[in-house]
Amino acid sequence: MKQILATLMLGTVLAGCGTSTSQDTLTESPSAKQEQPVSLEKTSAYVPNPQLPDDRRLTKINQTVTDDKGDLTLKQFKPVNETRKIGPIEMTIEEIKVFHARPSYGMIDFFHGFTHEEFFDLIKTRVTITNTSDTPVTFNPVAHFKLNGEAEKTLEDDVYLESLAKTYAPSETRSGNFGFILERPVKSIELLTSDVLDEKQDVLKKGTTYSTFLR
Rank of each mutant, 00 (worst) to 15 (best):
K2H: 13
Q3S: 14
L5R: 14
L5Y: 12
M9G: 08
M9T: 14
T12M: 06
L14R: 05
A15S: 15
A15C: 13
G16H: 03
T21S: 11
T21V: 14
D24C: 01
T25K: 08
L26V: 09
T27C: 05
T27H: 10
A32G: 05
P37R: 01
V38G: 04
V38D: 08
E41A: 08
S44W: 05
V47S: 10
N49R: 04
D55I: 04
D55H: 08
K60T: 15
K60F: 10
Q63L: 09
Q63W: 06
T64Q: 04
T66Q: 13
T66K: 13
K69D: 07
K69H: 08
G70W: 08
L72S: 02
T73F: 12
F77Q: 02
T83F: 03
I86Y: 01
G87L: 05
I93F: 02
E94Q: 12
E95Y: 12
I96R: 01
K97Y: 14
H100I: 06
R102F: 05
P103D: 05
G106M: 06
F111T: 08
H112I: 04
H112E: 12
T115M: 04
E117F: 08
F119H: 08
D121V: 00
L122K: 05
L122W: 10
K124P: 00
T128Y: 05
I129N: 07
N131G: 01
S133Q: 03
S133D: 14
D134P: 04
D134W: 00
P136N: 04
T138S: 02
N140W: 00
V142D: 11
H144V: 13
K146D: 09
N148H: 02
E150F: 04
A151E: 15
E152N: 03
D158I: 12
D158F: 11
D158C: 11
D158E: 11
V159G: 05
V159R: 04
L161W: 03
E162C: 04
A165F: 11
A165R: 05
K166S: 13
T167N: 09
A169M: 12
P170C: 00
P170K: 00
S171Q: 14
S171P: 06
E172F: 10
E172K: 07
G176T: 11
N177W: 07
F178Y: 15
F178L: 02
F178M: 07
G179S: 03
G179F: 03
G179N: 10
I181K: 04
L182H: 06
L192A: 12
D195M: 00
L197N: 02
L197A: 02
D198F: 00
Q201I: 00
D202R: 14
V203T: 06
V203P: 01
V203G: 01
K206H: 02
G207N: 00
G207Q: 00
Y210G: 05
T212Q: 05
R215E: 14
